[in-house]
Design a binder for these strands. Structure first.
Length: 837
RNA sequence: GCCGGGGUGGCGGAAUGGUAGACGCAGCGGACUCAAAAUCCGCCGUGGGCGACUACGUGGGGGUUCGAGUCCCCCCCCCGGCACCA
């Protein structure tokens, strides 16, 4: 059975894979339910966007997750392994325009197709739990969560300069602007626009998001570093300067309060509120206004490029240094950002390179207040660049002579006492801009009423359904704004005519909580069941691409903390362990449609089978590395599975009698070749287990299974004893290979007369006494160079080892006539004879 | 510029401070075959030698050590993140 006809090659993976996939599905083999008291494991892979078909990145992601899931089931855990679809987003709208098909229809068709593809991979999901974020049963809870943010004051509207992608016709969050001001999705340069938008107050959680990274030992260090940089905490002080003629207070933030005596100008962002006052009051108002206009119209790339030309304009206004009483000019400068700190800075050209460049250009004095600890004191007139390092304070009254590390806290303390400043912490992280001027997303559940203002939709009226048949346009306004019928709705508060919010939510909102929904996916009455979440959460192992380090992985942490604060869950972190898989590379570049170097997973699976594809992916590289796709490598994996098949086939009569006598123990085996094979079987169990469990080195785990196959295949079994051993070896091989290649191993397991399927049979245990070596290869070095290798009995004492080593012919002749200085021994491994002369 | 992660055969990759190159791919030689494919056996870091052997070898240069791919210092290169964040 299942041997292909002559002329084709190898075992009949197509029939076998279909058969077992059908079994798992019809029997719900991998369905998991909360069983309080039983140890659980929540294994999760980032759910896919239903773009149409799986790509190799998905195949890699899901192969890793599936292998781990199956391994953990066999280890006896209750494993939750769900999947779903991140189904809202732009491509559906583009498809709608291109093919004139409703976005929903296109999306659902893709979901069904990709579900089939996942099944063809042999993935062990609990399919009862599939969620789709575009399903009203799901997004009503996305909307509900929004309302909770709103109620707590954490969702708010604000008019602000925001990132606008002209190609996607929508605004973007800060995290979604990457590579020097480009849209994360389409790469178009982003421009700033002033718009009234919805934000989530993620900055309220900035400190906790930062601190709790220290509680995540199971995360890759580099992801944590990326998040720390992104959150960007800086400690300093806020101090205000008074404008001389108007008495206006201008607030600034600095991390270098120790440079306060060196301030020689004040600079405002072009968007700073005081700028408008300057324009209206100044005789030069028109000129200043023109400058401001120019800055504002610059793209964010031009505005924020390092080393970009710093431009400014004198305003004619001046401010007074509260500490020194000195007076200095106020300028407007293009390099000051309105959305960081206060949008105004105290300029200290001697100790800040940006201020230095600016001051030199506009002839502003440079006043050093810190000297290098060693060498010449600084001269403001001749300095060629700012001195930003630590040093010794000078020109600063009673603080002169203090080193920077002391000067900063002392001077802040003094400033606070005197009332000049207040301690302040600033974060680089900005509030999360969540409104999108797009159709295919979860509608923001609020209504605008001329009388009541912004009114949330009552929870019992959720979901606010997305209308069908909306004409998708590219005008830069939400398509929903065009649907008058949908838009008009009575105000929930006063009943008078109101108007719905036409923007939808960022799809990253939808993906920030899906792992909670998986715990109770069909719960109609709650966002998720507290009890089920308490059992399953947090996710024990999360697997996905590193590109989400500062996107999804921060947002999901934020939501989790918010849920905990609402009392919905006790988990304050969503993902205990994180595995960031590398990219799939072909011909030296990331596989992508635009480069034309994609390999279609369907094609690989139909040509070689899912087991082969999974095996190759897990074998070709450690999971965190990039994986170089190689058709030859795939063939190699396939060849290995064929060899496994043949090994069983050739030993059928022996293996069919499985379980009759059970394996012999090590102490019953006398012949070295039998003892060696027995040892190989058990060291394989030990090493494969360690590789998967602790090291997450699936490639070496596979290598060890290949070694075991090589050992079994070259072992000629004749006696009963030998046949017994082969059987033990094959059983171990199939058991350990099962999580990697579930179909072929189940089939062979069944063929060899086993009744119970392998899937949930216990993972094999290594027998302790079968791990110990009888003999060991000892290396003998002379002065650290390998000169001899010899097989010695294991466990020799130091003296015996030295003696036997010195008696080796290659050693004796080399040390003849030389003085032995000392002999280093490492039991069972090495002898190093150190000689002189 | 700052912060990470890396540089090991022709290639992907292995190596608790103790035999560098496991396992696989490619390549070479052989068996089977009329032939090919598949399969099986053997070889496979570089230089020298018919050979037993021998010297060299983990980006470069120093150092620690009986012994360094692994630890320390300096440098070069590649990849990734951040970048006018006050």
């Amino acid at each position: 059975m299942f041997i292909k006809e002559e002329g084709s090659m190898g075992y009949d993976f197509q029939s076998i894979e279909k058969k077992w996939q059908h079994t798992w599905e019809s029997e719900g083999t991998f369905n998991a339910d909360a069983e309080p008291g039983r140890e659980k494991f929540y294994c999760l892979e980032m759910f896919p966007y239903p773009s149409g078909a799986l790509h190799m990145g998905h195949l890699r992601n899901y192969s890793i997750g599936d292998m781990l899931t199956r391994f953990l089931w066999k280890k006896g855990l209750n494993v939750l392994h769900p999947i779903g679809f991140d189904a809202f987003g732009m491509p559906a709208e583009n498809a709608a325009m291109k093919y004139n098909t409703p976005a929903a229809e296109w999306t659902w068709r893709n979901i069904e197709h990709m579900t089939e593809q996942l099944k063809h991979m042999g993935c062990s999901y609990d399919w009862r739990r599939r969620v789709e974020t575009c399903n009203p049963d799901y997004y009503r809870w996305t909307q509900w969560i929004f309302l909770q943010f709103f109620k707590k004051g954490l969702a708010y509207r604000k008019n602000a300069p925001v990132n606008w992608c002209s190609s996607c016709s929508t605004v973007l969050a800060n995290e979604q602007v990457i590579n020097d001001g480009h849209c994360w999705r389409c790469g178009t340069p982003v421009v700033k626009r002033n718009l009234e938008q919805w934000f989530l107050r993620i900055t309220d959680y900035a400190q906790e998001l930062l601190d709790d990274l220290d509680n995540l030992p199971g995360w890759p260090e580099r992801v944590k570093i990326m998040q720390r940089n992104w959150i960007g905490r800086s400690e300093g002080a806020r101090l205000s300067f008074t404008e001389k003629t108007t008495g206006e207070k201008i607030e600034t933030f600095t991390t270098r309060f120790d440079t306060i005596f060196g301030v020689t100008f004040l600079a405002l962002a072009p968007e700073h509120p005081f700028v408008q006052k300057i324009i209206s009051l100044s005789p030069e108002g028109d000129r200043i206004s023109a400058f401001v206009q120019k800055c504002v119209s610059q793209s964010s790339i031009e505005r924020t490029a390092v080393g970009g030309e710093k431009e400014g304009i004198f305003t004619g206004f001046s401010a007074v240094n509260p500490v020194t009483g000195e007076e200095f000019p106020i300028l407007i400068a293009n390099y000051i950002l309105m959305d960081y700190g206060t949008g105004a800075i105290m300029g200290v050209p001697a100790h800040d390179q940006r201020d230095f460049e600016f001051a030199r250009k506009y002839g502003i004095p440079v006043k050093p207040v810190i000297n290098p600890a060693e060498g010449e004191p600084l001269d403001g007139n001749s300095m060629e660049k700012a001195f930003e390092a630590d040093g010794i304070t000078c020109n600063s009254g009673q603080f002169d002579g203090h080193p920077t590390s002391r000067a900063i806290p002392e001077m802040i303390e003094w400033g606070v006492q005197k009332g000049f400043c207040a301690r302040e912490v600033n974060f680089r992280l900005r509030d999360w801009l969540i409104s999108r001027q797009r159709y295919w997303g979860a509608p923001i559940p609020v209504v605008y009423c001329d009388h009541c203002g912004v009114v949330p939709v009552p929870e019992e009226e959720l979901p606010v359904l997305l209308p069908d048949n909306v004409k998708i346009t590219e005008v830069g306004k939400s398509p929903l704004a065009e649907d008058g019928e949908w838009l008009s709705v009575p105000c929930p508060k006063c009943g008078r005519p109101g108007r719905r919010e036409a923007d939808t939510m960022d799809t990253f909102i939808c993906s920030s909580w899906y792992f909670f929904r998986y715990c109770s996916p069909r719960n109609g009455g709650e966002v998720f069941s507290k009890e089920e979440a308490a059992y399953w959460m947090p996710v024990d192992q999360y697997i996905g691409g590193i590109e989400h380090a500062c996107l999804h992985l921060i947002y999901a942490r934020f939501f989790t903390k918010f849920f905990a604060d609402l009392g919905l869950s006790t988990a304050r972190e969503p993902f205990t362990n994180l595995l960031t898989q590398g990219m799939v590379i072909k011909d030296g570049a990331k596989m992508s449609k635009s480069l034309g170097n994609v390999v279609d997973p369907d094609e690989i699976i139909s040509r070689y089978g899912a087991d082969t594809a999974r095996l190759f992916i897990l074998f070709a590289a450690p999971p965190a590395n990039d994986l170089d796709w190689s058709e030859r490598g795939v063939e190699g994996a396939h060849r290995f599975l064929n060899r496994v098949w043949r090994l069983v086939e050739e030993n059928m009569q022996v293996l069919g009698k499985a379980g009759q006598n059970g394996p012999q123990s090590m102490k019953d085996l006398k012949e070295p070749r039998l003892r060696d094979l027995k040892r190989k079987i058990h060291t394989t169990i030990r090493d494969v287990t360690r590789d998967i469990d602790r090291e997450k080195q699936f490639n070496t785990a596979v290598a060890r299974l290949m070694e075991l196959l090589n050992a079994l295949a070259s072992f000629k079994a004749e006696s009963d004893e030998e046949q017994q051993l082969i059987r033990e070896g094959v059983e171990v091989l199939l058991s350990c290979l099962n999580p990697f290649c579930p179909h072929i191993t189940e089939e062979l397991w069944e063929m060899t007369g086993h009744g119970e399927p392998l899937a949930k049979l216990p993972w094999p245990m290594a027998e302790e006494d079968a791990l110990e070596a009888d003999t060991v290869t000892v290396v003998v070095q002379i002065n650290g160079k390998v000169r001899e290798k010899a097989e010695f009995p294991a466990g020799l004492g130091e003296e015996a080892l030295k003696k036997m080593a010195l008696e080796l012919p290659g050693v004796g002749k080399r040390i003849e006539g030389l003085e032995i200085v000392r002999i280093i021994t490492v039991p069972d491994r090495l002898v190093n004879v150190v000689v002189k002369g």
